[in-house]
Design a protein around this nucleic acid. Structure first.
Length: 928
RNA sequence: GGGCGCUUAGCUCAGUUGGUCGAGAGCGCCUGCCUUACAAGCAGGAGGUCGCUGGUUCGAAUCCAGCAGCGCCCACCA
């Protein structure tokens, strides 16, 4: 029949596409505001939109699997569930990619012009965007695809405009000339977060600036006040020494600063020095920013090319002189010899020139953090320019409060402090970018009256003078300026839509910690500002996917793992289960990109095992109807009651784990239950029962289907494809109104919990394991049925009627509840409850070997007993340890004593059986 | 410079409030098995002074201090 056709191994390729189509066509992923109204409290997740530029990597694989597990779990629990998908236009990143393409054709974006270039980018993202969504689908993400959004689509662009104008009107957006981080390659401003510091080896140069004529007295005074950095050149001129890591910037120096309280330099304040190589004379000023105890205590001031120096200039009135252009080359304000030189060439040239003039005092190795562009890794240049900023402090206040009062919580918890620290030290956000790909800044300048207007709609005429010579700001907005609105812009904000009412705020956000500041923090801020409440309550920050050497997976290192390749090879379920089960909460995951087999075998093997359990059911259950549990309640065998009881425990624990974001914990619970309990023990103990004529057949069939049904449900959020397929093939036993994806999540049943059955079965399990162990230990193959003697413990009650199971699972021929005959040679063990187990092995074992082994065991046991006895003799232990702990120790000791006696007896019996043993040594070999 | 995290079996990692953890899983390894669900499997097993040193405690992988190694984040000390 059907069952016979099922392949021995699960073939994901044969079923995934079909199931995916079924889910999608069935509309199970979607949710409407009406659903939310009718159903239980909605559970909403908005996806961290992947960049349209890149293809999906394993980080996405992990993150989206986590989200899908949560979503599917809540959906099955009956919550109205919505997971909104989408992609991010990724300003710089995408523009870079397209520009690189153009470069291959020998063109630049300027050759195309703005409009044509943007058109070109659109063509590119239309292609890649679809591919990314396809990849998400391939790993099984149950997003509502009908709601797919793009940060640059019309609705979201309207949201961007609206928030910009609102913030502008509230004076929370302003324009100004400040030192910002500038990428000389991308030719745009960057936010603080986009300039990533990277430790590098550099140099600290010490340069001598000669004093201008007439400053000798001031210099000499400083010198006698202890200013070692002030001295005389060979030609007699006085000089002072400053230090810098960027000598080329000295060409733009407009002053030297000292701390006003520095006793050495009091005389120098107001003095003039000659700036080498430039012929300019610059003043010495006092500023509190300079610390007396670092370096020489004197700082060269380059206001146009250093943020601190810019501030010093603001306080002291030093002039601001730009000596570099946008590309980081020295401009016309630099001395002729350096004009046009790139900053790094200029650095060498300046150092050489200074050396030539005898003004280089020395150079030290200097390791420091150099900020680089997060997109192209070019060293960022601090640059004075006019940009747009968001005033962050007012926005940060409620966002900080939300974390402090627990409105928003982070998992793992340590991120709370990181978040709060950032919020407490928030700096204004530079949002303008000199790019073409992105949301154009909705600001117009009037050429007639100079009016500046931020507008929701493109203006026809100047609001100030009515003139029509309006020009829009050429810049675009930081890509994060659209993504920070994502949690509500996807629902149609600023309109008061039904979606917004039903689905905002969401519940959980799952993402990588790298974008905690870029995105998470800002979403919380915009959420409060635009919507009056946080966009989500819980933030889960998962770990990083790394290669086997611990390096972050990246395209440039070529150490990435392509999720689609994994899906192709092992299936989406294998990928999902592997990443879920392989790391704890927020912990990094390591995968070997060179050995996908080794990396994903755990998931694949597990999925296959699951498949085969289902296959067994289909092959062995037969076609007769399966009775509901209620109808077989009176015929349940011990193993039936045991597995049903265990299942209730598993359900409870999975809920606990998932609720705490311990997804791996949930996977572990289910693996233990399904493999450790169900497949290894339950199936093995009922195999003979489900066959026609088997004892208690109907009960076994019913329980088997019931439990397997539950296993499918419980595992569905993690491995949705194999469970959906299997569940569909299983003979029905209960609610089967639709596919598994919308089936009811199991609820622990107090009725099925059966502590006594659990105790009894666990005892049997222990007994069987011990017997199997003894058999292996004494090399008694499965072909040899042996007798079993049990005494003590709860044996008689627990053994009643279990002979069949013992025979099948431990190859025991007969069971005797009596001590072994005196002096019998054999193997013995003691169960935890003190039950003594003895297998008479006269004539099957090598007695001499066993005797030495047993003697060794006796020694080992004796020393352990001594330890426990000492503990029990300890007055402090007895009085202060909880009663049950002491009791446990006593039990431990008691069982050791029993075991000890057992070994002793065995040793003597082995000695007694000497003759017989040597005669039978030949029989110790393998069974035929 | 400040902050955070990690260090447990050969490898990758679990271990929730200190007490069945006298420490587990997966992979790998060893032994025996193609037992009609599954060799992507079954049964059994070896393997760990829980980074080091102290401390608190009747009891520490778990708490505290110090140290070492690795990693991450933040920061305007030129």
């Amino acid at each position: 029949m059907k069952a016979a056709v099922l392949p021995k191994t699960f073939d994901p390729r044969a079923v995934e596409a079909r199931i995916l189509r079924m889910w999608e066509e069935g509309g199970y992923f979607g949710a409407s505001p009406e659903d939310a109204e009718a159903g239980a409290e909605p559970y909403v997740i908005v996806i961290p939109p992947p960049n349209v530029t890149a293809v999906l990597h394993m980080g996405h694989g992990l993150n989206n699997t986590i989200q899908d597990v949560l979503v599917r779990w809540r959906r099955m629990q009956g919550r109205t569930t919505l997971w909104v998908p989408g992609t991010d236009h990724a300003g710089i990143a995408t523009q870079n990619v397209v520009e690189r393409r153009l470069a291959e054709e020998g063109k630049t974006r300027y050759d195309l012009g703005r409009e044509a270039f943007v058109q070109r980018v659109w063509e590119h993202v239309d292609r890649t965007g679809d591919r990314i969504l396809g990849q998400l689908k391939a790993i099984g993400c149950s997003c509502d695809w009908t709601r797919t959004r793009f940060t640059l689509d019309e609705g979201l662009s309207r949201a961007v405009r609206e928030i910009f104008v609102r913030l502008y009107e509230d004076d929370l957006i302003y324009r100004g000339e400040y030192i910002i981080n500038w990428c000389p390659r991308c030719l745009t401003a960057l936010s603080n977060e986009e300039a990533e510091g990277s430790e590098s080896d550099g140099s600290l140069w010490h340069i001598r600036y000669p004093f201008a004529p007439g400053q000798e007295e001031a210099a000499a005074t400083a010198r006698s006040a202890g200013a070692e950095a002030v001295g005389r050149l060979p030609d007699g001129r006085w000089y002072l020494t400053v230090s810098t890591t960027r000598p080329e910037t000295m060409l733009g120096d407009t002053g030297v600063a000292v701390n006003p309280g520095d006793p050495r330099y009091g005389s120098l304040i107001g003095a003039a020095v000659e700036l080498p190589l430039t012929g300019r004379t610059i003043p010495v000023v006092a500023d509190r920013h300079v610390s007396a105890d670092f370096g020489t205590g004197m700082v060269k001031v380059t206001p146009a090319h250093d943020p601190n120096d810019f501030e010093i200039a603001g306080r002291t009135g030093l002039r601001v002189l730009k000596v570099m252009d946008a590309r980081g080359a020295m401009n016309e304000s630099a001395p002729e010899a350096f004009r046009g030189l790139d900053r790094f060439d200029a650095r060498k040239a300046v150092v050489a020139a200074l050396e030539g003039e005898g003004l280089l005092a020395g150079r030290d190795d200097h390791r420091h953090a150099i900020p680089r562009c997060y997109r192209c890794d070019t060293v960022v240049e601090p640059r004075l320019s006019e940009q747009w900023f968001v005033r962050m402090e007012p926005l940060a206040r409620p966002a900080l409060q939300a974390s402090r009062d627990g409105t928003v919580t982070f998992a793992p918890d340590r991120w709370t402090r990181v978040y709060e620290h950032w919020m407490e030290n928030i700096r204004d956000w530079c949002i303008s970018r000199q790019l073409w790909w992105g949301h154009r800044i909705p600001v117009w300048y009037c050429g007639d009256c100079g009016e500046v207007m931020a507008c929701r709609e493109d203006p026809e005429a100047c609001g100030g003078c009515g003139g029509s010579s309006l020009e829009q700001d050429p810049d675009v907005l930081d890509t994060w300026f659209s993504s920070w609105l994502w949690p509500f812009s996807v629902f149609g904000w600023p309109d008061e839509t039904a979606d917004l009412k039903a689905f905002y705020p969401g519940h959980t956000l799952s993402t990588a910690p790298e974008i905690l500041f870029f995105w998470v923090a800002r979403m919380i801020m915009s959420g409060f500002h635009a919507m009056g409440e946080a966009p989500f309550a819980r933030v889960y920050l998962h770990g990083t996917v790394r290669d086997i050497q611990g390096r972050k997976m990246s395209k440039s290192l070529g150490n990435g793992v392509d999720p689609l390749e994994v899906v192709e090879l092992y299936g989406a379920d294998a990928l999902r289960f592997t990443v879920i089960a392989s790391a704890g909460i927020g912990a990094d995951i390591r995968l070997d990109h060179e050995d996908l087999e080794a990396s994903f075998a755990p998931g694949r093997n597990f999925v296959n095992k699951l498949w085969n359990a289902g296959r067994f059911a289909l092959m062995s259950l037969g076609d007769e109807p399966i009775l509901p549990l209620s109808q077989v309640a009176d015929d349940l065998h011990l193993e039936d009651r045991w597995i049903l009881s265990r299942q209730q425990r598993a359900v409870r624990r999975v809920d606990e784990e998932l609720d705490a974001f311990r997804i791996h914990g949930g996977a572990e619970v289910l693996r233990d239950f399904f493999r450790g309990d169900f497949a290894d023990w339950y199936l093995e103990s009922v195999k003979h029962r489900v066959r026609p004529g088997g004892p208690g057949r109907e009960a076994a069939r019913s329980v088997l289907v019931h439990v397997l049904d539950g296993v499918c449900r419980l595992l569905h959020p993690m491995v949705p494809f194999v469970t959906e397929e299997m569940w569909g093939l299983l003979p029905g036993s209960g609610d089967r109104d639709g596919p598994l994806i919308v089936a009811r999540w199991p609820v622990p049943s107090a009725e099925l919990a059966d502590a006594r059955a659990e105790t009894a079965f666990e005892w049997l399990r222990e007994l069987i394991v011990r017997v199997r162990g003894l058999r292996k230990e004494y090399r008694v193959g499965e072909g040899t049925e042996v007798a079993l003697h049990v005494t003590g413990g709860a044996s008689s009650e627990l053994l009643a009627g279990r002979e069949e199971m013992l025979r099948r699972l431990a190859r025991i021929g007969s069971v005797r509840q009596a001590p072994p005959p005196p002096k019998a040679a054999g193997a013995s063990a003691v169960l935890r409850d003190g039950t003594e187990v003895f297998l008479p092995l006269e004539g099957v074992i090598d007695v001499e070997r066993e005797r030495t082994r047993v003697a060794r065991e006796i020694d080992r046991l004796a020393s352990r007993m001594k330890g426990i006895e000492a503990k029990l003799a300890n007055e402090n232990f007895l009085t202060r340890a909880p009663e049950e702990v002491v009791e446990r120790e006593r039990e431990k000791l008691a069982s050791c004593k029993v075991q000890f006696t057992k070994w002793k007896v065995q040793l003597t019996s082995l000695a007694a059986g000497d003759g017989a043993a040597s005669r039978n040594r030949a029989a110790t070999g393998r069974q035929p």
